[in-house]
Design a protein around this nucleic acid. Structure first.
Length: 918
RNA sequence: GCCCUGGUGGUGGAAUCGGUAGACACGCAGGACUUAAAAUCCUGUGAGCAGCAAUGUUCGUGCGGGUUCAAGUCCCGCCCGGGGUACCA
């Protein structure tokens, strides 16, 4: 009897549906296990073979945990707001809600085809008003909170108001923007607007001015992704920075907790490192420099206060507020600022070859050398970091050095590094020289002495700085969550909860308004709220994805974003799998939100994810055809160099083994209908390249085709067989046949041409050994998420049992359970129809591993001589070095290499190796 | 530029703790069955050298150094690919 996967898979999909096999209840009598995937953005290209890599891994893990007796939550949903749907809407006029709906339906179909164990009744989608009413509600809570630095937690802004009315802000220790101190009396005389402006500096969600990529020609704000080389990707129009009033979240208040929290979670060390670097904690000092001849002071942040005697000039970010005030070189400064405006922040940091800047004409007084040092502006100083101003020490900083060299500014050596050969300029090593009272000190001592000194002098203080900046939370777009905010007297006020959700209104056109407002501004009926005009920006993509995993715990709760009972049971995510591209963005934002929720007492844990694994990216393997320029003639790969050609992407679905189906090519796109071909060996061979899988590169492979041809079980196992999930790799179908063959071979352990043949005989020791070795391997490897090695363990077991002609129920039953997480359809078929078990295999008990079956008494020792294996000799495992040595030395091969001499060294590692040094 | 990460046969990969490099597959070559094909099964397969052969031997985990009895694995320096770099998701 043959393995008819199509029939089998259809049957059990229906069975699981009819029996609601995957329905998850908040059953508190069982131990919970929460397994989570990063939910997908439903793109128009459909789910491609890269998406399921992580999903299959978590599906296997969740099914495995279920066999182990856990109550497993493994949900799925959709990150449904986003830019592509909006761009598609602009092109076609179709409402993003409509296309998103269609795309989600397609995704769900594709996901179901793979046979995942999702409980769809728990599905969330971020664009659903029932969901985003809570995203809006959370925003309101952030708005009405501030961060108490002393208590290290978020607290209600009303507490702050009460404090201000009583004692002003003199004693307030809170995360804030720039704010001067005021007394209670002053506070009480402030107008409502003035008070609101002050509170804005403390709120966790607040308004301030920030730069956006502005494209005047398109009349719209562009995402970084839409800007290439300083011009818009569409149309190639110039892009400049423009300052706009926007929402921000005060994530910097949580910087230290986000950093400390990393020590408590099980993430890959590399990922923690990325987050640490992103947060970028550095200790240093802020120091004030007086501007010569003026009343102004410039505050710089430096991690190297020890080098201040070598500070021969100051550099301000071109955007620094002081620039306009102090500049006398106005023309040069304006010209330079115009240049910087056209440069992206990334270019400014990445481009170290171009050294550029402009002299303001002003000088500052170096409080230690007493010299007047020139004040420059340069693009390498960023307004968002530190104070937006640095003291330049060309002797100990590479960029300062390049700058000084280019502009002929003085360089004073302040550190003697002669005791540290090989130390680079910025290493904190060496002895101070030319530095007054610091001379002779080692760098670390000089740093702390200088910190004390500037504090004594009242011109600065030791300070911790974070590279991380507050998170921009406004988008001038349509397809996102509207803010629950109206304005009165230019200050924002949140709408009452009963007005939630603030539904995304219809608009006449999704096109940009031309003046930077979001398309929502077009709907004036909607904008004109009785209490004041509404905020027309929308929230960014990460708003909805910062808390979605909590919603799965309690998806129908209409009153609160997640019920206490539900979250007390499910707690946090035990295993989270997703792409490394989210390492700092989504993962940091959601950790921040979660800590805020914790502060408010809504969740029981400080961290949302216990364990996190990054899956690698499945890259596409693009194919190319070569068109002879100016013709519609295409030349095969080997012959292309004889012509002037243009390489063009060709749909990989009409190419097999790099050979183009020329007929299909003519039918593919209209422009190729009359294509001619120059063949090589009567074949058209395409070129290829590994690239990111994307619609525009025509290299998207959908799982549907594979599933149709081989079945979902083969697809699942093949994706796992490709390699470790953390690793990126191109999609190649080379091994598909092998995996499919394995399933057929497994099937033949149950069925022959004569039909079902299972014996009830007792298994032999050899057969038991195969089984228990496999149980152990699968158990260990699933726990460490090494799924590719599981597949080969299954193959080995199946090959061995085939050789042993084993058809015994006792063995096959256990193996079927082991296989069930990987290939659930065939396992269910074999479980219920071949083995005749009652009920589903999904909740069967995981086989118990019996170590005694595997105990070996002997080990075949490799005997190496000078590190090269020359012989193997079998010894009992309990033998000691003394028992082994005589026989090893007497061995014929060993004798040959010893040439009569005694070995210099005899190394015996029990159960591993014997090594002789001669 | 900066941060993170990867590089092992013709291909995907295995080697979990510094201990027999290449498990398991794909592909390829040869063979069995078959009118033929599919399916299935068997044998071989890192490279070089010697040998009719069994086998022996040298080299071999991106490149160059180092530590060690022993290095794919640890350390230093380099080359190349991938991801992120704050409005793609």
């Amino acid at each position: 009897m043959e393995y008819k996967f199509q029939e089998i898979e259809a049957r059990w999909k229906q069975y699981w549906k009819d029996n609601q096999t995957y329905k998850v209840s908040n059953d508190t009598s069982k131990q919970k296990c929460y397994v989570l995937d990063m939910f997908p953005y439903p793109s128009g290209a459909g789910l491609h073979v890269g998406h399921p890599l992580g999903y299959i891994a978590t599906d296997i893990y969740s099914r495995y945990k279920r066999l182990k007796g856990f109550n497993v939550l493994h949900p799925m949903g959709f990150d449904a707001f986003g830019l592509p749907a909006e761009q598609y809407a602009i092109q076609t006029g179709q409402h993003p809600a409509t296309t998103t709906e269609v795309n989600i339906a397609r995704y769900m179909e594709q996901l179901d085809a793979i046979g995942f164990d999702y409980d769809w009744s728990r599905e969330v989608r971020t664009s659903d008003p029932k969901y985003y009413q809570f995203t809006q509600w959370i925003f309101i809570q952030l708005f009405h909170s501030y961060y108490n630095n002393a208590a290290q937690q978020a607290e209600p802004i009303t507490d702050l108001v009460a404090t201000f009315a009583k004692e002003g802000n003199i004693k307030t220790n809170a995360a804030s923007g720039k704010i001067s101190t005021f007394t209670a009396e002053e506070w009480n005389t402030y107008s409502e607007k003035q008070q609101q402006e002050i509170l804005m500096e403390y709120r966790l969600a607040y308004l301030k001015y920030g730069d956006v990529n502005w494209c005047p020609a398109l009349g719209t704000v562009l995402a970084n992704d839409e800007v290439k080389d300083g011009v818009s990707e569409r149309g190639g129009h110039p892009v400049v920075k423009k300052s706009m009033r926007q929402w921000f979240l005060r994530i910097t208040a949580y910087a230290q907790r986000l950093l400390d929290g990393l020590d408590t979670v099980d993430f890959a060390e590399s990922l923690k490192e990325q987050q640490r670097n992103w947060i970028g904690r550095s200790e240093g000092a802020s120091v004030q420099f007086n501007v010569v001849g003026r009343d102004e002071k410039i505050e710089v942040f430096t991690t190297r206060p020890d080098t201040i005697f070598g500070a021969t000039f100051l550099v301000l970010a071109p955007e620094h507020l002081m620039v306009a005030e102090i500049s006398t070189n106005i023309a040069a400064i304006e010209e330079y600022k115009a240049y910087v405006q056209s440069r992206s922040e990334r270019d400014r940091q990445a481009d170290v070859k171009t050294v550029s800047g402009a002299f303001t004409g002003a000088y500052a007084h170096n409080p230690f050398t007493g010299e007047n040092v020139p004040i420059w502006i340069a693009e390498y100083v960023l307004m968002g970091y530190g104070t937006g101003a640095i003291m330049a020490v060309p002797s100990d900083d590479d960029r300062d050095n390049a700058f000084a060299t280019k502009f002929g500014l003085p360089i004073i050596d302040v550190i003697d590094k002669s005791d540290h050969p090989g130390a680079t300029r910025s290493d904190k090593l060496g002895k101070m020289i030319n530095s007054g009272f610091l001379d002779g000190l080692e760098v670390p001592a000089a740093i702390s002495l200088m910190c004390r000194k500037v504090e004594e002098m009242g011109i600065g203080k030791g300070r911790v700085n974070y590279r991380m900046r507050d998170a921009g939370f406004s988008r001038q777009r349509y397809w996102g969550e509207p803010f629950p905010v109206i304005y009165k007297d230019e200050m924002p006020y949140t709408l009452p909860e009963k007005e939630l959700p603030v539904n995304l209104p219809d608009v006449e056109s999704f096109k940009p308004t031309g003046d930077g407002d979001s398309p929502l501004a077009r709907n004036t009926d909607w904008v004109n709220h009785p209490d004041g005009p509404r905020e027309t920006d929308t929230m960014p993509g990460y708003a909805g994805s910062s808390w979605y995993f909590l919603r799965y715990m309690d998806p129908q709760n209409g009153g609160f974003f997640v019920g206490k009972e539900a979250v007390d049971y499910w707690q946090d995510v035990d295993l989270y799998v997703g792409g490394a591209e989210h390492a700092v963005g989504h993962l940091l934002y959601s950790r921040f939100w979660h800590k805020f929720f914790f502060d408010k007492g809504w969740v029981p844990t400080q961290e949302p994810y216990k364990k996190l694994v990054n899956q690698g990216m499945i890259q596409g393997r693009s194919n190319f055809v070569y068109r002879i320029q100016g013709t519609n003639e295409f030349v095969s790969l080997e012959l292309k160099d004889q012509y002037e050609t243009t390489a063009l992407h060709v749909d990989v679905n009409i190419v097999e083994n790099d050979v183009l189906d020329t007929e299909a090519f003519r039918n593919w796109l209209e422009e190729y209908a009359d294509a001619e071909f120059i063949l090589d060996n009567s074949k058209y061979v395409c070129g290829w390249e590994v690239e990111k899988m994307s619609k525009s590169k025509w290299n998207v492979v959908n799982p549907d085709i594979v599933i149709e041809k081989y079945g979902a079980d083969t697809f699942r196992m093949y994706e796992m067989f490709l390699g470790p999930i953390e690793q990126s790799k191109p999609w190649i179908t080379n091994g598909l046949d092998g995996v499919h063959k394995f399933l057929r071979k497994f099937w033949r352990l149950f069925y022959t041409e004569n039909g079902l043949e299972i014996s009830d005989e007792a298994p032999t020791p050899a057969e038991l050994k195969v089984l228990h070795r496999t149980i152990k391997k699968i158990q260990d490897d699933v726990e460490r998420l090494s799924f590719n090695t599981c597949i080969s363990a299954f193959m080995i077991a199946t090959n061995e049992l085939t050789d042993l002609k084993c058809r015994k129920r006792a063995i096959l039953k256990e193996l079927t359970i082991l296989l069930a997480p990987f290939a659930p359809h065939i396992a269910e078929e074999l479980w219920q129809n071949a083995l005749g078990e009652n009920g589903t295999v999904v909740y069967a008990p995981f086989p118990k591993f019996d170590e005694s079956v595997l105990v070996e008494s002997n080990f075949n020792y490799p005997v190496s001589i000078n590190g090269k294996v020359r012989a193997t000799i079998d010894f009992p495992l309990d033998y000691t070095e003394d028992q082994v040595k005589p026989e090893v030395l007497a061995n014929e091969q060993v004798q040959k290499w010893l040439e009569g001499k005694d070995p210099k060294k005899f190394i015996f590692v029990k159960g591993r190796i014997i090594n002789l040094v001669i």
